[in-house]
Design a protein around this nucleic acid. Structure first.
Length: 196
DNA sequence: AACGAAGTCAACCGCTAATTT
DNA sequence: GAAATTAGCGGTTGACTTCGT
């Protein structure tokens, strides 16, 4: 499939936006320009980056390209069973909060996980629930979340049986932000979720 | 071989939150 | 504190490939 994507050098046409002079798939030359510029000057002030880097793109497009494909340590494709399991568990817990889920998977982006979910995992869950006469609580819960945004369901219920007060005791964003401690691993999260 | 349907995923859009002036 | 700007997010689109008939 990688080859297919590489060959996608088409220009998507859209009349709804006049902000980006150039749209559609990025060329190798554009990638090179953007990557060089960001490495030299840093990833900030995205609005001015395309002008300074000599790209006929909008800042949003540049930011997206950098974050999802060009920045260092990006993993593409080959999502492991362990990662898939983690995505399933985290989605059950967090719903469609792709950026939060992505933060738990080093090298993965929210866009990739979102795509993977929509094309693979959502169907997997559907199939599981269809083929199971007596659905387990896990499957039933997962299926429920697909159809209804889990924001309505207090996360504490999932984790701690619903006994905690939402406002005072728990902030899911902070709880799941491990960017500072560096201690988190896939194993750690899996272990934690096993007890959730 | 030809065609249409379904699947995949890169990229864009609109909106909101956060930050700066 | 208000307005403007910037960053980030999730949803959606659409080009392309693969599969089934």
């Amino acid at each position: 499939m990688r080859k297919q994507i590489e060959r996608k050098r088409h220009i998507r046409s859209s009349s709804s936006s006049l902000l980006c002079a150039n749209k559609g798939a990025w060329t190798a030359e554009e990638d090179q320009k953007l990557a060089d510029f960001v490495r030299t000057h840093g990833a900030k002030k995205w609005k001015s980056i395309p002008v300074q880097a000599g790209l006929n793109r909008c800042g949003k497009s540049c930011r997206f390209r950098w974050l999802n494909y060009l920045r260092p340590n990006i993993k593409r494709g080959n999502i492991s069973d362990q990662e898939e399991d983690l995505i399933l568990r985290l989605h059950k817990l967090l719903g469609n909060r792709w950026s939060l889920i992505a933060r738990r998977l080093p090298g993965r982006t929210d866009n990739e996980i979102k795509n993977y979910w929509n094309s693979h995992l959502s169907k997997k869950i559907m199939n599981q629930s269809d083929s199971t006469v007596e659905s387990s609580s896990v499957e039933a819960s997962a299926n429920h979340i697909v159809e209804e945004p889990p924001q309505e369901v207090p996360i504490q219920e999932n984790l701690f049986g619903g006994s905690l007060d939402i406002e005072t005791s728990f902030n899911v964003d902070e709880f799941f932000d491990f960017s500072n401690d560096g201690l988190l691993s896939l194993e750690w999260v899996s272990e934690f979720l096993d007890h959730a």
